[in-house]
Design a protein around this nucleic acid. Structure first.
Lengths: 205, 205
DNA sequence: TGGCACCTGTAACACAGTTACAGCAGACTC
DNA sequence: GAGTCTGCTGTAACTGTGTTACAGGTGCCA
């Protein structure tokens, strides 16, 4: 044999490379085979099919995500810090979000953070169904926010552009609002504001 | 000519039918041509290509969405009602969400509701950048929530199942929480709770 | 030496989007 | 009426996708 035998890990490695460079759509079995200098059938032998390959890739990337360490003094601050850390993780692996969303596995990605959230919510004294509700609310909020962010960044040029939509008339004579809605969103700021508001209101009930 | 000439509207109509029945992936140019009893090239003549076809479909469906009429006494209640109405609209057109997300046009879909939100936020006396922030926060919250919902409903069987994840140990001796997190989510309830909390906290600042 | 499990390559299948090109029907012009 | 031109349709192909039947090759073990 000229080249040392192909391994499943080698396949996953270069597949991850392709996805990281050009996104999940760019990962075709033929391109992957070419990259590895082998034939498609070898890849099928090692990973089954494309579905399994993407599954394995997701699993691999999720496992690589670091543990989330909450910071802050008050429980609310610590919960917000978990949310921020999770968002950061997801933003650092943009293609992971795409793969995982496409495959309906978004929740799977969230499990480690869910544990951290449970811990922090318990620290506020909340327990049982009420605590679970807070955890779920934050979970949905963060995941949803990241999905919307990814979507916006992928979006083509809006037509009509946002600026034109918010002229003085449609903005009900509020030029400040028109300006704010026409400007690009400060997503980090909006995220923190939203999560903080949600958490504070839920804990104060 | 045997059959009366094909029209662009007729193409969009049956395309919408196919999407409504089996989702956007089931809409292939050949299937559409077969359904119309014509050849693929005619479809290309009328709509350009698949991208334009989906664009037109999105435009059409968005235009069909009804106007949102807020209800409730307090501004907060009315904002929540807008959010609920929007979520209802999106849930009534599940494939629209998929198409629109896939094409990065989620925001486009939200514009009518954004107008309604601006109006209600103004009614609270808030103006300018602060008002814009509330509008955007609610917007992100609703769209994100719907995306997460769609994702969960599409999700395959989780492994390991959620029930097993939340045994007494991992739930930190909180059987009530374990039970709540193992149970299926009451999405409507969670949605209303979350939006209400977010809105109340943002308006109270 | 034979046999066997593991791995690779050739060549195909069905299906996707897309298009070059020929042709048909009807209106319009001279 | 003949010619032409526009609008529309059909045939048949091209490329690229995931997938697989099948024939081998390679190295280890008995």
């Amino acid at each position: 044999m000229g080249r040392p035998a192909l391994t499943r890990d080698e396949v996953l490695e270069t597949a991850a490379g392709l996805v990281k460079q050009h996104g999940p759509d760019a990962l075709t079995m033929r391109k992957l085979a070419a990259e590895l200098g082998t034939a498609v059938t070898s890849i099928y032998w090692h990973v089954g099919n494309r579905e399994s390959l993407l599954d394995a890739l997701v699993e691999r990337t999720v496992a690589d995500l670091g543990v989330i360490r909450p910071t802050g003094r008050t429980p609310a601050q610590r919960i917000v810090s978990v949310a921020r850390a999770l968002r950061r993780q997801l933003r650092d692996h943009p293609h992971l979000v795409a793969m995982v969303h496409e495959r309906g596995l978004t929740e799977r990605m969230f499990l480690p953070a869910q544990r951290a959230l449970v811990h922090e919510v318990h620290a506020t004294g909340l327990r049982g169904a009420r605590a679970a509700e807070v955890v779920r609310a934050v979970q949905f909020q963060v995941v949803g926010f990241v999905l919307v962010e990814r979507n916006r960044e992928r979006a083509p040029v809006q037509q009509p552009a946002e600026e034109q939509l918010w002229d003085s008339e449609t903005a009900e004579d509020d030029p400040g609002l028109a300006r704010a809605l026409a400007a690009p969103v400060d997503q980090e700021r909006l995220f923190v504001t939203s999560v903080r508001a949600l958490v504070e209101a839920l804990l104060a009930r």
